[in-house]
């Protein structure tokens, strides 16, 4: 204690010497009292936050007024939360993709024109990266009727007779035949030719009675001779027919029987006897 007092006295004297003042007892006593204010012990124990810094190794002798019960820290340890942002983002992305796919499939199922439009869009995108592929596939798609979206998918190596026949018979439109010819590699004139041929075929079947059947040539298509090629058809169609020579349709085509075979009721020279007329007094058959 005496050493501390003497040390404080030395500090106070040194302070007064630096200031160039004389040492007087009242001033020195006042400075000593002021200095003693900085050595008073803390009256309260450290707060729990401070004890968290000091931990259980805090020396109780450092805080003379500290209560023994205040040494354990009541602050709970900090546990970092688990981060689930990555999992959440992946789940959200998956849900968005699934919802988009469901919506697109629903629209495709509801509207038949959506498939053609989607196919056109896909072919345009493919054509952007591969122009040679697009020049071969994009043309029929752009001219295609939405109802005939399956037409470009038909085999291109069929006979011209079958193609022109299946077009109007299957879909009832004259444009389908032209598309088939065009898809087979023909030019614009070939498409128009196919449309004319199919139109004539359908008109004949509706308005004119069936002519005398020709078993060898009686095809069910629009052309009179299924194996022949129209004069207006392009060279491409001829080449296709020549290439597919082994795949000609069979000539065995069911035909109508001759007129002399079928009975013609009501004609006296038909050789078929009519049924006897019922007697007039006979009772009328009950309906």
């Amino acid at each position: 204690m005496n050493h501390a007092v003497s040390h404080n006295d030395d500090d106070v004297r040194h302070l007064l010497e630096d200031a160039g003042l004389e040492q007087t007892s009242p001033l020195e006593a006042s400075l000593m009292a002021l200095r003693a204010a900085g050595h008073e012990p803390m009256q309260t124990a450290p707060s729990p936050e401070l004890l968290a810094f000091m931990g259980p190794a805090a020396d109780p002798s450092c805080e003379p007024s500290a209560e023994p019960s205040a040494t354990p820290s009541p602050v709970a340890p900090v546990v970092p939360l688990r981060r689930r942002r990555t999992m959440r983002g992946a789940a959200l992305g998956l849900a968005v993709v699934a919802a988009t796919g469901l919506g697109v499939s629903g629209v495709a199922a509801a509207s038949p024109g959506f498939r053609a439009a989607a196919g056109t869009a896909v072919e345009q995108v493919v054509g952007f990266f591969d122009p040679s592929e697009a020049g071969r596939q994009a043309v029929p798609s752009t001219e295609a009727n939405p109802g005939d979206a399956d037409a470009p998918e038909q085999p291109a190596f069929g006979t011209s007779g079958n193609r022109t026949d299946s077009g109007p018979a299957g879909h009832g439109t004259a444009g389908a035949g032209g598309e088939s010819e065009d898809n087979a590699g023909g030019s614009r004139s070939a498409g128009e030719t196919g449309r004319d041929v199919s139109g004539s075929g359908s008109g004949r079947s509706d308005s004119q009675p069936a002519p005398a059947p020709q078993p060898e040539r009686a095809g069910n298509g629009a052309l009179q001779d299924p194996g022949s090629i129209p004069a207006e058809a392009g060279d491409t169609a001829k080449k296709l027919v020549e290439d597919a020579g082994g795949t000609q349709p069979s000539d065995v085509v069911p035909s109508l029987p001759a007129d002399d075979v079928l009975p013609a009721p009501g004609k006296p020279d038909s050789g078929v006897k009519d049924l006897p007329a019922p007697p007039k007094d006979a009772p009328a058959p009950s309906q």
Binding site: G38, H39, E40, P41, M42, P46, L50, F53, M54, G55, P56, A57, A58, D59, S61, C62, E63
Partner: peptide, 14 residues
Amino acid sequence: AAAFSRIYAALAPG
């Protein structure tokens, strides 16, 4: 933690 306690004991009265 012991170093924190020593610092507190040395500087807190001042």
